[in-house]
Design a protein around this nucleic acid. Sequence first.
DNA 1: GCTCATTTGTTCGTATGTATC
DNA 2: TGATACATACGAACAAATGAG
Lengths: 243, 243
Amino acid sequence: MIKKAEASLPVYYRLQVSIRNEIESGRWKPGEMIPTERALAEIHAVSVGTVKKALLNLVFEGYLYRVQGKGTFVAGTTLRRESLRYYRLLEHFDDVEADLKVRFLESSEMNCFEPVTRYLNLTPRQKLYEIKRVFLAGEKPVAYTVSYLPQKMFKGLGKLPKSLFEKVTLYKVLEQNYGLPTIYNHELFQIVPAEAEVAGNLKIPEQTPIFFIEMLSFTYKDKPYEYRQAFCHPGKRKLFRET
Amino acid sequence: MIKKAEASLPVYYRLQVSIRNEIESGRWKPGEMIPTERALAEIHAVSVGTVKKALLNLVFEGYLYRVQGKGTFVAGTTLRRESLRYYRLLEHFDDVEADLKVRFLESSEMNCFEPVTRYLNLTPRQKLYEIKRVFLAGEKPVAYTVSYLPQKMFKGLGKLPKSLFEKVTLYKVLEQNYGLPTIYNHELFQIVPAEAEVAGNLKIPEQTPIFFIEMLSFTYKDKPYEYRQAFCHPGKRKLFRET
DNA sequence: GCTCATTTGTTCGTATGTATC
DNA sequence: TGATACATACGAACAAATGAG
């Protein structure tokens, strides 16, 4: 028996939720094609127009993209740039963007610790991958980042070639190897003095005040999957954001 | 004669652009109702479905909102919170939001200066309003802001009651008194030592490293209308952002 | 380069449901 | 209650892009 509240929801909306759940459950990976409008209409016994409305809403929501003549596909990471790349480096509002290179430093396995355990919803016994990277503008290091990912979700991450991490963004690596797109993230900004490890990697004097940005990235179902600490010293340039 | 490129665009899209232009030209103010679907369909000699598609796209773009049984209305400012309020203050990701009070310090008229002239697309002879405010978390000042607005666009702004600026956000004041919604803004982050004026208003020692955030706000047609300098010292708390 | 089957995009029309005042 | 306005749902026809042969 169907509850009244459910029964009264529009058909297109129930279809939309149903397809969204299938995507979130991993039935299709990012980039894969889902059934055609006509097929979905027949399967669910509704009109093509109703299917189209459900699919277009999922496009708006960022779950799908459609290509005329080809089909409807599962979308990947919705963030337009990667985290620290998303913060463009400018001198003025009308300056041109500086582009960044990534240097992979090291990856290792370690035990969970607070506050990562809490942020990533882990048990204290689970293991973490730790990934350290430096971002360079020209030759100058502008950011040093340390990422923590649950080992359970990303088995074999430590065995991927280091060069991969310098060619594409971390988000792309995770999406293509584990089918997990990044939907949104949270950030906390602070100003802190550079400690020895950070100052060394950024090639600045110790105790220099720098940006300390904690970042928490989420995938489907609001599941957090990465906690990152970024230490940023943009030099003459400034961090740019668009709202 | 209609150009080929124009003629080949979909009907709903041309209608969408046409209505958007009318909104941007100020034909209807935020909150006002626009003609009904049926009326628009007759005026433009298209089907109701086509009108609906154009209107729903404008809803998605943030120009309109619709209420079943009432009508379609021009939307106001699209930013969910005001600038520095948009940066919530938290201690941890799972902390609760601190709420801010605004204290209006002073407003005055002044001549244009660089880089404001350039950022706001003004001529050097135009005048500016300068508005200084302090944001308080509890009793502690956490941000000191100085806004610059072109006098030409906001005639009589200096004569509005000061209390108004402490009750509603600056964006609301501008929207309700001048019909100008805020569509998006740009920000540049820096770390600077607090100078005397800033340190005094934030009640911190001079030379303390603080956030210096330059902000440029835009309304319709990508027209910049406010340049703001925000000096922020969140204390124990951190600046929070959601992407 | 062309044709054809497939798939999405556009546009029309109609009927009915639901919220507002 | 009735008039108005938006929302849902169906169906049909044609346009436009894609890819395979």
